[in-house]
Design a protein around this nucleic acid. Sequence first.
DNA 1: CTGAAAGCGCTTACAG
DNA 2: CTGAAAGCGCTTACAG
Lengths: 376, 376
Amino acid sequence: MVKPPHTSAPTIRLVAREAGVSQATVSRAFSQPELLAPATVEKVLSTAKRLGYVPNQVARALSTGRTHNIALILPDVANPFFSALMRGAQAQAYKRGYATFLGDSDETASLEDLLLDKLAVQVDGFVLASPRLDEERIRRHAGRRPLVVINRELEGIERVLVDTASGFADAVKLLAGFGHRVIAYVGAPRSSWSSQQRARAVCETGAALGLKVAQIDAARPSHEAGRACVDQLLNTGATAALAVDDVVAQGIMAGLADRGLSVPHDFSVIGCDDIIATTTYPPLTTVNAYCGLAGAKAVDLLLNGLSEPAAPVDTPVIVGELIVRGTTGPAPQGGVPNAGAPADRDPSSPTTSRRRPRRPKPEPQAAGPSSSRKSI
Amino acid sequence: MVKPPHTSAPTIRLVAREAGVSQATVSRAFSQPELLAPATVEKVLSTAKRLGYVPNQVARALSTGRTHNIALILPDVANPFFSALMRGAQAQAYKRGYATFLGDSDETASLEDLLLDKLAVQVDGFVLASPRLDEERIRRHAGRRPLVVINRELEGIERVLVDTASGFADAVKLLAGFGHRVIAYVGAPRSSWSSQQRARAVCETGAALGLKVAQIDAARPSHEAGRACVDQLLNTGATAALAVDDVVAQGIMAGLADRGLSVPHDFSVIGCDDIIATTTYPPLTTVNAYCGLAGAKAVDLLLNGLSEPAAPVDTPVIVGELIVRGTTGPAPQGGVPNAGAPADRDPSSPTTSRRRPRRPKPEPQAAGPSSSRKSI
DNA sequence: CTGAAAGCGCTTACAG
DNA sequence: CTGAAAGCGCTTACAG
């Protein structure tokens, strides 16, 4: 047997011995140096440094009951809204001396529940973005550990809200100004607070401006789901769509392109979040949701609730603003070309779309499926 | 003062008392039930359940030295490659009973270092994706805790590699078959193992097929950087580009569109990772990197090194394959239109591009910047 | 099969 | 300003 490659770290006892003081003094040198004579502090710290000593957080946590950890529970880390949120939250937690656990629940309530249970003892609190988990269970977890939720309203539970109502109202006004008369809101599952808020803003503003507003629900907030609902969208007679988020908006753009429709010439599209909006083509008109800021605020709220008000949170409501880019324009005269008619081409073969009219034959992928694994 | 809302959890002592056994027995009922009489186990477990007792991981960690936590250190969680990796890693860790810390280093080596230091005591090991951190520091951390790196070769340190060499070779062959004679590889900073491997594959295969291969380095692996290097790219005389990843490839597509060039008609583009590739328009031809699998494998490797070989890792090398979609096609006859000439339009105003030739005037955003915050 | 007791590495009243 | 000692909630030889 070789000896284990990972040597164990020096403990407080070693430092105490080397520095000629008690363990209590070493401990205080790190946590409450103001109680000690400056010379003592210096002596302890320097020998600690020499020995490579660093206080063991696990032992400290057991002793104090404070872990200096938080956990972030998110439905889908691969969704850019949540990765941005996570990034902001993690950075803020780090800044305030906290490490952060990540729990991806894969949009599954039961997994979320398990994650919350499992992590509870190891954290001082949770940031929870969970459009799905039922209120009762959330309250149960909140009773055990401080918890702040994202984009949900639960009486008595702290939360940060991204208020996109005025942004969506502005978006509707923009479309109305462009002459659109029929518009559609493409939402996520109805349970989501965000989607409900956005739907309401679109409907109310649309009604106030005399527009006809259709409402469509995508199966999930995904690119594919957005793309899949375009037929339904066109059947409404709308000439513009507001999507629940940028990912769905991008999916809608792809679905429109599949049908040879050009954005914004034939159809206008607006997203929300401003997280992938500058990477679409044309760049997406969207409502900024300040995802990273939302994550950071949630962490501040949580930590301040832990009576560490380092940076008091002004208000836990973030107001998203409309950002006009390239996917919005005048309503097409006479409505959307071919709208309502079945697409005249294979929608899975975008290379035949009207967007690249100069395209000569032959189609290189014409023989096979549009997405194929190929080993040459 | 109201009493604190967060009641403290029941401890092992309470369960022991209630069940009429010793603490040791309660402990064993959870960790080594095979040592106990079945009736005893049942008695303990049922009263534990009744009391809502769950073993405190922190105390367990202090006592055993095993935390059942791992940490993931990544340069940028917002990059879809890393979010996918993270997702795979987190899911696998959870499956094997481990919770995972997340550290986003914001592509900063010094922050990475701090994160590793801070998390060390709280984890049984690290998964580190760090194209930047110098070898010496990585070795120092690896000496303290088990550590597996992603896409890096360090003698004696475990790693998982995504081998995209053959995928890129196939990609070059595809382009050669389409008649492209000059191609370009658009890489990330040269230090990256992945980018180097891809560059080599492109150069070697290109040379073998008699193609001229240009090499360009984007400032960072980002959409913007990809978009920014398009002039340089066109100046090489290339009619096709292979990018270090999908994000850069998408940026290149945007830059081409800015100049009124159509993909794949005027120019072919190939990415890598297959993570946002189905969401571009046209969908991107790319080399699959199985990011999620890479994350899961890294976790398996790490945990198996902790002598918990629940699922032996067959091989820590993942081979990426070419996936042909819509951004590759025949070389344009006579080269890229206007290639080398300065763009004839404002590249920040994509709404004027040739891709939407049916676009009528007036331009709705013509007066303002292409990206503006607008409150109506 | 089960228990008494020491120990994991800290923190923190309590004394001085 | 500093130290001795108990305690945080577990685990695990060691005895029986």
